[in-house]
Amino acid sequence: MTAAGPDDARLIALFLDMLAAERGAARNTLLAYGRDLEQASAWLDGRLGTAQAPELAQLSAHWAGLARASAARKGSAVRQFLAFLQSDGIRADNPRRDLAAATAARPLPKTLDPRDVDRLFAALADRLAAHPGDPRTLRLAALIELLYGSGLRATELVSMPRHAVRPGRGFIVLAGKGGKERLAPIGSRAEAAVAAHAALVPIAARHLFPSRNGTHLTRLRLYQLVKELAAAAGIPPDRVSPHVLRHAFATHLLEGGADLRTLQTLLGHADIATTQIYTHVASKALVELVNARHPLADRKA
């Protein structure tokens, strides 16, 4: 297998430039697309840009032994690349239909039972009662309240600016995926927890959760803190993570009657299809909602 040919390398670079300029793709996304396309080009001896059905069949054969999610990602990259070449007039046709699609099975998100959430917050309350005013405990309380109360992503949380939370405003302005700004809700509990923690953070600090080296708390440390609290609450640590708390936020809102469009906004999802995964998690509650609220629910057959 050789490297991508010079023509392919130029076309891949143009495609990545388009993703960055027109779609605002994040750096990690660009790196992933670049790797997948360079590898596909190498498998075709530098002929990805001019590939036809036989060459695309070769790619499908190469991907046959990969995990379904990996094959689906690589196929998506190539199909978007070929569509770009046609839309920019670099080639007249678009043979992407000849590329066998490997559909990735989207796993159901892990979540927590409301009783487990209660246990988690009970353990947090015990720590606050035992160590009132302790900076590390107040920081942990603010982190947990924002994860479950606002449904933040781990990166959004740890990188939050020092003055992102303003009393009484009811929402936070965040830098979401791809650097795009989004609004996240913040309830009175989370606001109070953040205020107690922020009172101990230097006014000149750039981040709400600063680290000793002048940047901010790392995602790894956040994961460790969440799992330590889970263990203290008697919950197996492998069942709890920052992302699980975000999923719990979404699932419990849906079970409480929130609609998918509202949930999409609260979670900062660009595509409603991403939000729809929660309907599988909360399907029992949705069936009960239909049976209770539908106009025909109280009529006898």
Rank of each mutant, 00 (worst) to 15 (best):
K74E: 03
K74T: 07
K74G: 00
K74V: 00
K74F: 00
G75I: 00
G75K: 06
S76K: 07
S76Y: 02
S76Q: 06
S76N: 04
S76H: 04
A77Q: 04
A77N: 00
A77S: 14
A77H: 07
A77K: 03
V78T: 05
V78Y: 05
R79N: 06
R79I: 00
R79M: 02
R79T: 00
R79Y: 05
F81H: 09
F81L: 09
F81V: 01
F81T: 02
F81W: 03
L82K: 00
L82H: 14
L82Q: 11
L82R: 02
L82E: 01
L82C: 12
L82A: 11
L82P: 02
A83H: 11
A83K: 14
F84A: 04
L85D: 07
L85T: 10
Q86D: 00
Q86P: 08
Q86S: 09
Q86L: 07
Q86H: 12
Q86F: 02
Q86T: 04
S87E: 13
S87T: 03
S87F: 05
S87A: 13
D88C: 08
D88N: 11
D88I: 00
D88T: 13
G89D: 07
G89H: 05
G89M: 03
I90G: 01
I90S: 02
I90W: 06
I90Q: 12
I90F: 13
R91G: 01
R91W: 06
R91A: 03
R91M: 06
R91K: 04
A92C: 02
A92H: 05
A92T: 14
D93A: 10
D93Q: 10
D93L: 09
D93H: 11
N94D: 15
N94R: 06
P95M: 00
R96V: 01
R96C: 08
R96E: 13
R96L: 05
R96K: 12
R97L: 12
R97S: 13
R97G: 12
R97M: 08
D98T: 05
D98L: 03
D98M: 10
D98W: 12
L99R: 10
A100S: 09
A100Q: 14
A101G: 13
A101V: 12
A101C: 08
A102Q: 12
T103Y: 13
T103C: 06
T103G: 14
T103I: 03
T103R: 15
T103H: 15
A104W: 08
R106S: 05
R106G: 11
R106N: 06
P107R: 14
P107Q: 07
P107K: 13
P107N: 07
L108I: 13
P109Y: 07
P109I: 02
P109C: 04
P109A: 06
P109N: 05
K110V: 11
K110A: 14
K110F: 03
T111W: 13
T111H: 13
T111R: 08
L112E: 08
L112F: 11
L112T: 03
D113A: 13
D113P: 07
D113I: 02
D113Q: 10
P114Y: 10
P114W: 05
P114K: 09
P114L: 06
P114I: 05
P114A: 04
R115N: 09
R115C: 01
R115V: 06
D116W: 04
D116T: 03
D116L: 10
D116Q: 15
D116R: 09
V117P: 04
V117F: 04
V117T: 09
V117A: 08
V117L: 14
D118N: 06
D118E: 15
D118I: 01
D118R: 10
